[in-house]
């Protein structure tokens, strides 16, 4: 019976989500959400970006290659800090609130440092 229940729950979960996104896609997703316009002032202030926010941050983070893999911060830490950015929605075109952006940058200095290119 337990096996059957697990099978049903698993099917239900699988029915709600697809495969894991790669680390590169996750990295670029966070950068895309931070830079989505209208861009929050705190992004420019804390991360020091102006034009071509996406390109600048991807370059600093060096996560453009498809084989990029998180080390520091780890993938789990990255997902933990990303959580406020998906509160407005999981669609990749969703624009997070500036309070969510501020929360990420203030509560995740390691992510902020990673996006500044500090290793």
């Amino acid at each position: 019976m337990r096996t059957a229940a697990t099978w049903l729950v698993g099917l239900a979960v699988l029915g709600c989500s697809g495969p894991e996104a790669s680390d590169a896609v996750l990295c670029q997703d966070v950068i895309q959400r931070l830079c989505a316009g209208p861009r929050c002032g705190v992004v420019e202030e804390r991360l020091g970006v102006k034009d071509d926010c996406d390109g600048t941050l991807v370059a600093r983070a060096r996560c453009a290659p498809d084989d990029f893999v998180f080390t520091t911060p780890s993938r789990d830490r990255w997902l933990e800090c990303r959580a406020p950015l998906v509160r407005q929605g999981t669609l990749r075109t969703a624009v997070p609130g500036c309070d969510n952006v501020s929360e990420v940058l203030s509560s995740c200095p390691d992510v902020e440092a990673f996006l500044k290119g500090v290793r």
Partner: peptide, 8 residues
């Protein structure tokens, strides 16, 4: 879309 767990 990518959910909070990092899944499509």
């Amino acid at each position: 879309s990518i959910d909070a767990a990092g899944r499509y």
